[in-house]
Amino acid sequence: MLESLLEGVIAFMLIAGGAFAFIGSLGLTHLKDFYMRLHGPSKTTTLGVGCTLIGSMIYFSLHDGPVVQEFLITIFVFITAPVSAHMLAKSALHHKLKPDASTRGNPEELESEKPKHTVEESPQGNSPLP
C-alpha cells in the first residue's frame, strides 16, 4: 500500500516537473522582451527541475537507500537559478535594455535622461551637490 502511494507521488512529481519545464520553455519563446522572457527559465524551469529531481530522489531512495547526490543537486539548482536570473536582470538594467511598450512599470534605471532639477532649483556654480 505504501509503495503504491509513493509511486503515485513520484508520478505526480515527474508530471508536475515536466509541465513546469514545458511552461517555462513556452514563456521563453513566446514572451516579448528580455525582462518578460527572464521569468520562464528563472521561475518555472527551476520548479520543473526541482520537481523532477525530488521525484527521482524518492524513487531511488525506495530502491537503493538514501540518495544524497540528488538532494545536493536540488539545493544547488534552487540557489543558483534565481541568483543567475538576478544577475542577468541587473546586467540588462545596467546596459539600459529597453522593455516592450506594453510592459507595466518602468524601473528608475530605464527612465529617460530627464534633468533632475528645474531651472529655479538647479545648483549654482561648481557645487558637486544636487
Results as ranks from 00 to 15, higher is better:
Thr103Met: 15
Gln124Pro: 02
Thr52Trp: 07
Met36Gly: 03
Ile58Phe: 15
Val49Trp: 08
Val119Phe: 14
Ser122Gln: 11
Thr29Arg: 12
Lys32His: 13
Ile73Asn: 07
Tyr59Lys: 12
Leu62Trp: 06
Leu5Pro: 02
Val9Pro: 07
Lys32Cys: 04
Thr118Glu: 00
Gly50Pro: 00
Met87Ile: 12
Ala89Arg: 10
Ile23Gln: 06
Tyr35Val: 01
Leu38Glu: 04
Leu88Gly: 01
Leu26Asp: 03
Ala11Ser: 14
Phe20Lys: 00
His63Ser: 14
Leu14Ile: 11
Lys114Cys: 07
Tyr59Arg: 13
His39Asp: 04
Met57Phe: 10
Glu111Met: 12
Leu93Phe: 12
Ser127Trp: 08
Thr103Gly: 05
Phe12Tyr: 11
Glu7Cys: 05
Val83Phe: 15
Ile79Gln: 00
Met57Glu: 00
Glu111Phe: 01
Pro66Asp: 10
His39Pro: 01
Leu88Glu: 05
Gln124Met: 13
Ile15Lys: 13
Pro130Ser: 15
Ala16Leu: 15
Glu70Asn: 09
Leu38Gly: 01
Met57Ala: 09
Gly55Ser: 09
Leu47Pro: 00
Lys116Ile: 11
Met87His: 07
Gly48Gln: 01
Arg37Leu: 08
Leu97Glu: 04
Phe20Thr: 00
Lys116Pro: 04
Glu3Asp: 12
Ala89Lys: 08
Pro99His: 06
Thr80Pro: 00
Leu28Ile: 07
Lys90Phe: 11
Ile23Trp: 07
Ser112Gln: 12
Phe78Arg: 03
Phe20Glu: 02
Thr29Gly: 06
Ala101Trp: 06
